[in-house]
């Protein structure tokens, strides 16, 4: 594992970020967003539960995996702002890094970190501690949690989300 590049946002980019609020990340602070998060997990569980041939154990494992992969893509894989409003002020920055202007341990961050842990504990319980299911859900959860660590803020491992500059 090589820590290839640690880059911080440049000065002009941080000026542009402060020029206006970030519509792309402000919604995560809404209480409705928190409730929706739980609702989505319930919907996922229900969806996997009603598919014939899928045992309750498997449906729990699938729910946890889907939630972790989905939230990883949303918070850690996609960078920038999909509907641009600020001349690319957030280019190369993931949604997780945009939340609350990069402040760590805010209420929203705590909530979004705790949810996957609780989901994982529930999932291992309801799969009756099956070793294989445990291994899958545990690794998915841990990868998701590592990406959320404060020490991973704007750190790029294995070229994931590496910022590409056209010129120097």
């Amino acid at each position: 594992m090589t820590l290839k590049s640690v880059y911080k946002t440049d000065y002009v980019q941080s000026l542009d970020q402060q020029a206006q609020g970030n519509l792309n990340s402000s919604w995560v602070n809404d209480k409705g967003a928190w409730v929706t998060n739980v609702l989505l997990i319930c919907v996922l569980k229900f969806f996997f539960g009603i598919i014939p041939g899928i045992s309750p154990e498997l449906s729990w494992t699938l729910t946890t995996l889907t939630y972790n992969i989905g939230s990883y893509i949303m918070f850690h894989a996609v960078t920038g702002v999909p509907f641009e409003f600020g001349q690319g002020a957030y280019d190369g920055i993931t949604l997780w890094e945009q939340i609350d202007g990069g402040v760590q341990f805010t209420a929203t961050r705590k909530y979004l970190t705790t949810v996957p842990i609780v989901l994982f504990l529930m999932s291992t319980h309801y799969t009756h501690y099956d070793a294989f299911a445990f291994l899958l859900t545990f690794s998915a959860t841990v990868i998701n949690l590592i990406a959320k660590l404060p020490s991973m803020h704007q750190v790029r491992l294995f070229d994931i989300n590496q910022k590409i500059d056209a010129t120097d």
Partner: peptide
């Protein structure tokens, strides 16, 4: 072994909840 891992995660969650806010930069 498994219990230790689970317990570790639970402790991490509690520790994360107790941490104080700060700006990274």
């Amino acid at each position: 072994f498994r219990v230790v891992l689970e317990l570790g995660l639970a402790i991490y969650a509690v520790k994360y909840m107790m941490s104080k806010k700060y700006r990274i930069d």
